[in-house]
Design a binder for these strands. Structure first.
Length: 112
DNA sequence: CGACTGACTCTCT
DNA sequence: CAGAGAGCCAGTC
């Protein structure tokens, strides 16, 4: 069971700085389709030592998974902003910052 | 085994 | 785009 968490953490670690992904997408990439909620749990259990960029994981709509007023949401928004990701009204524009492995590699090839 | 819960998502309105 | 409802999955009691 712990193996699933490990895979989730590895997948999250693969998200490049300045980009964000959703719980569902992470679950798919980790080979665990339909376990979006498990991803959230895995992040909660993730040890600090791994330095998992949990703040780059949002809901499918681009909205943060916490109340805008909560300490966690504030911290997440701050971390994202520090990477150049614009967070407005507790949500991020996935059209701009959303991460997709294939697209990412494609863009990496084009010099932009 | 059944009932409840949650860092989720999809569909319809 | 926001809100409501239903579906899903793993954990816990």
């Amino acid at each position: 069971m712990n193996a699933n968490y490990q895979r989730i953490w590895n997948t999250v670690l693969a998200i490049p700085a300045g980009k964000v992904s959703s719980y569902g997408r992470i679950a798919d990439l980790a080979g665990l389709p339909g376990r979006a909620r498990l991803v959230g749990k895995a992040l909660g259990y993730a040890p600090d030592a791994l330095e998992v960029p949990w703040h780059r994981v949002l809901r499918s709509s681009g909205q943060l998974a916490f109340e805008a007023a909560s300490k966690t949401a504030i911290r997440q928004a701050r971390l994202l902003h520090a990477e150049g990701v614009v967070v407005r009204n507790n949500r991020v524009d996935l059209k701009i910052y959303g991460w997709s492995p294939d697209i990412s590699e494609m863009l990496f090839g084009l010099d932009y």
